[in-house]
């Protein structure tokens, strides 16, 4: 009983970690631009597939592959922002939504063209005996996924709290005009936010692929779940996104385990709709915050 439960819990935490990273990716761009980048899921796919390309196809060493993958994702984020977001002058919201969808389709098309429709996988980062707790098996890769997610969160925390660029990005979020006035290059910050969110997504993809495989069309579902994680704690809050990500991951894996595996995606969607309908400001958010936000 307990063994099975723990097993589901661990697999929930693993996928949950990736949702958390996607959620954080949403937050990064949202905070700097108030855009919700619906191509966020594709960054994760890029991470997984490019990692496979560098490490399995080109047989590059592990760390080199990781570095190349991150650079590739960063470049994709950069191009996306410079080619499609920046040229739009005073776009309305509808256009913004659709342009990120359009880019996500282009990326998906490119991925399909380069990798085909098959799922890809590569070995875990470290070989070795799985850890066993009360009979439940934790693969070493699971520990990697959770560790890497934790590491990303800490790095981002210091980035936004301690570095000039990080603080400047937050300033743009609060008031772009004022930020411009004190000499912050808002356009550059928007660019950085896209690059950063792409990298965060790709790191998630690199880490999760040995466990859950990766294929070209996983992006939209990842985006929906990551978005769900992000709004759970109120868009913009990374702590909320992490909590939300793990919560969705766990609920999903419990549903798959105890009820029916075909319904695991439905769980996240239903949670998403319930939050949007009843508490669009997030479930861990105070009432005053709620009044200040627009939907």
């Amino acid at each position: 009983m307990l063994t099975v439960f723990l097993q589901f819990l661990f697999s929930g935490l693993t996928v949950g970690a990736v949702y958390a990273l996607v959620g954080i990716g949403f937050n990064i761009t949202y905070n700097a631009t108030s855009i919700i980048n619906l191509a966020q899921g594709e960054f994760v796919v890029i991470g997984g597939l490019m990692m496979w390309f560098f490490s399995e196809s080109l047989k590059l060493p592990f760390l080199v592959s990781v570095a190349f993958t991150i650079v590739t994702a960063g470049i994709v984020g950069l191009f996306m922002e410079r080619l499609t977001i920046k040229p739009l002058k005073n776009p309305d919201l509808l256009l913004m939504i659709m342009i990120t969808i359009a880019v996500s389709i282009v990326l998906r098309g490119l991925l399909m063209l380069s990798f085909g429709k098959n799922p890809y996988v590569y070995p875990s980062f470290t070989e070795g005996e799985p850890v066993s707790i009360y009979g439940a098996i934790i693969q070493q890769q699971t520990l990697w996924v959770i560790g890497i997610t934790g590491f990303c969160i800490i790095v981002l925390f210091f980035f936004f709290k301690k570095t000039i660029t990080g603080k400047a990005m937050l300033a743009c979020a609060v008031n772009p005009t004022a930020a411009q006035l004190v000499g912050i290059n808002v356009s550059k910050m928007v660019m950085v936010s896209f690059v950063l969110s792409a990298i965060v997504g790709a790191i998630g993809g690199i880490a999760i692929t040995p466990i859950s495989l990766m294929e070209y069309d996983k992006g939209p579902m990842l985006a929906v779940k990551g978005f769900c994680a992000a709004i759970m704690g109120g868009l913009g809050s990374n702590r909320g996104a992490v909590l939300g990500g793990f919560l969705i991951g766990i609920l999903e894996s419990m549903t798959a385990g105890y009820i029916h595996s075909g319904l695991k995606d439905a769980v996240a969607l239903i949670i998403l709709l319930l939050i949007l309908f009843f508490k669009p400001a997030g479930i861990f958010v105070s009432k005053t915050m709620l009044q200040l936000r627009k939907f």
Partner: peptide, 16 residues
């Protein structure tokens, strides 16, 4: 419930 939402939120809700 969805029509209280706007923009991105409505987009994602309908997608869901």
């Amino acid at each position: 419930p969805a029509l209280r939402l706007k923009g991105h939120y409505l987009a994602v809700a309908t997608l869901g």
